[in-house]
Design a protein around this nucleic acid. Sequence first.
DNA 1: CGTCTATTTGAATGTACTCAAAAGCGGTGG
DNA 2: CCACCGCTTTTGAGTACATTCAAATAGACG
Lengths: 195, 195
Amino acid sequence: MTSALKENIKKVLQHQVDEKQFSSFMALMEEKNFEKKALLCEEGVVCKYIYFIDKGSCYSYLTEPDGEKQVVQFAIEGNWISDLFSFFSEKKAIYCVEALEPVNVLALNKKNFQIACDTIPWVDRFFRVLIQNAYVALQYRIAKTNSEEADARYKEFSKLHPQFIQRIPQYLIASYLGIKPQSLSRIRKESIHKA
Amino acid sequence: MTSALKENIKKVLQHQVDEKQFSSFMALMEEKNFEKKALLCEEGVVCKYIYFIDKGSCYSYLTEPDGEKQVVQFAIEGNWISDLFSFFSEKKAIYCVEALEPVNVLALNKKNFQIACDTIPWVDRFFRVLIQNAYVALQYRIAKTNSEEADARYKEFSKLHPQFIQRIPQYLIASYLGIKPQSLSRIRKESIHKA
DNA sequence: CGTCTATTTGAATGTACTCAAAAGCGGTGG
DNA sequence: CCACCGCTTTTGAGTACATTCAAATAGACG
């Protein structure tokens, strides 16, 4: 159970972590399980945790005034997910985080996050780098969203996240890519003809 | 010259900073000036600094294989800009950062960034929160890019960044919004008719 | 099996794009 | 001072891509 998180920390920090320090970090996290469709974070409610996914998958989305759901992020084993704005500001969340499958997570609450930052030397840096990597990836994604057409975006997405294609319903991927499910269906049909 | 940076730090950390610590932080930054059209950061070259803009404005962009420029970020007085990926990884930059007007900046190099993080207690947290805020804003922006049409995106941009509308050429704003300059021109014409 | 949800397909519509050209604007040099 | 040049913005006409509306399949789950 702990090894996925340890791997994640090693990968982000790009160096080994002290075993004892890792244990104290782990001790601050709560194991939680959610059923499919359960909400790990809910729009309008302060989001109390950031989640590390040990098994299963989730996604976060924004609900438009017209009721349309706009997918923002997918997360599977080895990823972190939350409404960061809500978690850090302690204001109401604007996103929901929902389980796509039954999930096992390690959940870190704000108090323990603070304790970790204050008492374990690499934690502050770990979260800075984690968010920084996510930010850099997102900047690139928005540039591509702006400049490329839907079929190219889908192709890039499949290449970058082949695991997601397997496990995530098409209409959610469509939303993530900024298109309608019907359009994604047609794009897939086209790409089969060509391939 | 220092007051803008001090304000920025106060705003991000949401508390006052010790005067002495601030001075040591300032001492690690280099004042630099650039002419209009100068490159603060260049694609293909490791980006050595993160910049705090004291006066003037800049923008960052990606160059597509077909030569098209895709604007990623604008920055004016009080903002930070860089190619973060390049700065932190010390790999070649994928973006250029270019001066839109003559600019005065405070530039922080990697070595001094490290020193600051290691010796001044709030610096690690400052950059984490800075990037975190940028990340949160970007997530929201991409959700809106995906769900809203060009006219709504322009309207939201004008509301959120009225200063940018004044100072930034329209064809760059168009690129940032993911549309062509011709389309933005038409959108503006429409919005005047309605207003 | 029946129900509910997801995906596919078709036809008509709409938004933004391309190509092309004109008009506006700012700076430079004769 | 004005003529000219380069660059930005505007405008027009035709096109392409994605959307909407509608309906038919296909899958998943009890």
